[in-house]
Computed example of a mutant assay.
Amino acid sequence: MRQLLTVVVILACLVPALVLAKRAMPRPAVLARAAMVVDLATGRTLYAKHADQRLPIASLTKLLTAMVVLDSKRSLLRPARITNDDVDRLKWSRSRLPVGSLLLRKTMLHIALMSSENRAAFALSRDYAGGRGGFVRAMNRTARRLHMRHSHFVDPTGLSPRNVSTASDLTRLARAAYRYATIRKYSTSEGQLVLGGAGPLMYHNTDPLVRRAAWHVGLQKTGFTNEAGHCLIIVTQVRGHAMLFVLLGDPTPTAHFQDAIDLRRWLLSRPPTHAAHTL
């Protein structure tokens, strides 16, 4: 009888704890075609969905573009001009920089990362020792050095659907990009006044999460093309830990941000030692 009573007491203590744990760890309803969450400090994967599926990545490409620009060691204080060669003739996407605009290379890099300005990225790739062709070759060399085995790049903007990668490969890219103070600074600034072309232009960050103080965003890049869907890379703080989120192929203009919000909320609800969740 005493043993039975002991078992009943133990179960009475365990059941509420189990119910609480179950409530604390709901599976995030991630809409992205592929997703991954990694603890930057440990490299541990905390969430993965189709992480090895090769997909177009749109302007997430520009993180690699920025690395190649910075690795070239060419002065960011040199001016560069937007020419007809920098006009997008694949998607005919619009740009706020008219042909003939003269900007410092640092300004071009800033608005390419912060606002996904395609003509700025094209101009930076053309203003390279080996021209745009040499720049793209350097992109692929860098990808190989980072062991991004399922990635390939044909342009510096991501407008081409032939720029492909996986969520897993992109965690390698983002972790490498995070080591560059300039990339962290430019990608997370909220806005920048640009003097060039027809007059002053105010550029804003394409990621609204940088304006949420609680997120402490350390790096971000958004992307969209019809083929890639809506994409996001973001580094945010969770319980004092830098967490890297990669989201590819979300279906609507706000879904990638909502996926990130849901994943962060899920991480905050989990015990710190909980096992990785994989789909």
Rank of each mutant, 00 (worst) to 15 (best):
G43D: 05
G43Y: 01
V30M: 07
L63M: 14
D39L: 03
A35S: 10
A35F: 02
L63E: 14
P56W: 03
R27P: 10
R54E: 15
P28F: 06
L63R: 09
I57P: 09
L64P: 09
P26A: 12
T45S: 06
D39T: 08
M25R: 09
V69N: 04
K22N: 07
D71S: 12
A48Q: 11
Y47S: 07
A58Q: 06
R27Y: 15
K22R: 07
A48D: 05
T45C: 03
V30F: 05
V37S: 02
V37G: 01
L55M: 15
A35L: 04
V30L: 08
R44A: 08
V30H: 02
K49N: 05
A48E: 13
A66D: 14
A66G: 13
V37Y: 01
K22E: 10
D71W: 06
M25D: 15
S59H: 03
K22A: 13
A51S: 12
L63G: 12
A58R: 08
D71C: 09
T61R: 12
A34Q: 09
G43R: 01
L55F: 03
D52P: 00
T65S: 15
A41W: 00
L60Y: 04
H50E: 15
L46F: 01
L55G: 08
I57V: 15
A51D: 12
L70S: 11
L60A: 06
V68N: 13
M36I: 10
P26H: 08
Y47M: 06
R27I: 15
V69S: 03
L46K: 01
V69Q: 04
R54A: 14
T42N: 00
A34W: 05
A35M: 04
T65R: 05
S59T: 08
R27S: 15
L70G: 10
Q53F: 00
A41F: 00
T45K: 03
M36H: 02
L55T: 00
R23Y: 10
A34I: 01
R27F: 15
V38T: 06
L70D: 14
P56E: 10
A41D: 12
K49M: 11
T65K: 05
A58M: 06
Q53S: 11
A48G: 12
T42Y: 01
A34V: 00
L46N: 01
